Amino acid sequence: MENNCLTDNSDMESNFDPIHDIIDYLVRCAKISFKNARIDETEVRTTDKVRMAYDLYQRSPTDFLIQFGKYLAPYHIGYFETLNPVSEKERFQECVTQLKHYHSEESRHKRIRNRRYKALQKLQDESDYFSEKQMMYRNPLLYEQLIGQYLTDEEIQERDGVDNENLTFLNMILETVDRNQMRETKNEQMLTEIIHDGSNLGKSDKKDNNIKQKGQKKWGDFDTPDTKPSFVPETRKQAMISSPERNLLREEFFQEMYSSFIEGSDTDIDYSTIDNDEQYDDLQQLSQDAEDRYFDSELNDVENLEEHMKLVEQYGKKSNKTNECALDDSLDIFMKHISNKLNVS
Score class of each variant (00 low, 15 high):
N3V: 02
N3F: 11
N4G: 02
N9Q: 12
N9S: 09
D11H: 08
S14N: 13
P18M: 08
P18W: 04
D21Y: 15
D24I: 05
V27F: 12
R28Q: 09
R28W: 04
S33T: 13
N36G: 14
E41D: 07
T47Y: 14
D48T: 11
D48C: 01
K49A: 10
A53D: 05
L56M: 13
Y57W: 07
T62F: 05
F64W: 03
Q67S: 11
G69E: 08
K70V: 05
L72C: 06
A73K: 11
I77Y: 06
E81A: 02
E88G: 04
E90T: 12
R91K: 12
F92N: 07
Q93L: 14
E94V: 01
L99R: 04
H103Q: 02
S107L: 06
H109L: 00
R113L: 14
R113C: 07
K122C: 00
L123P: 03
L123W: 05
Q124L: 05
E126G: 02
D128F: 10
F130E: 03
K133S: 09
Q134V: 08
L142G: 00
Q145P: 01
Q145A: 03
L146I: 06
L146A: 08
Y150F: 15
Y150C: 04
Q157G: 01
E158M: 10
D160S: 03
G161C: 06
V162R: 12
D163K: 04
T168E: 01
F169I: 11
R179Q: 10
M182K: 11
R183A: 04
E184I: 14
E184V: 14
T185K: 14
E188M: 14
T192N: 15
I194G: 00
H196R: 15
S199T: 08
K203I: 15
K206R: 15
Q213D: 09
K214D: 09
K214G: 07
F222L: 05
F222E: 02
D223N: 13
K228A: 11
K228L: 08
P229A: 00
S230F: 15
F231T: 03
P233S: 01
T235F: 01
T235R: 06
Q238P: 00
M240D: 13
I241W: 08
S242V: 02
S243F: 08
N247T: 03
L248V: 01
E251R: 11
E251G: 00
E252A: 03
F253A: 02
F254L: 12
S259Q: 14
S260T: 11
G264V: 05
S265T: 08
S265P: 00
S272G: 04
S272W: 06
T273W: 09
D275C: 04
N276W: 06
D277R: 07
E278M: 09
Q285E: 15
Q285R: 12
Q288P: 04
D289F: 00
F295W: 12
E298D: 13
L299F: 07
N300L: 07
E303V: 02
E307V: 03
H308E: 10
M309R: 15
V312F: 09
E313T: 07
Y315P: 06
K317A: 03
K318T: 05
T322N: 10
E324K: 15
D329W: 08
L331V: 11
M335V: 15
K341Y: 12
V344P: 01
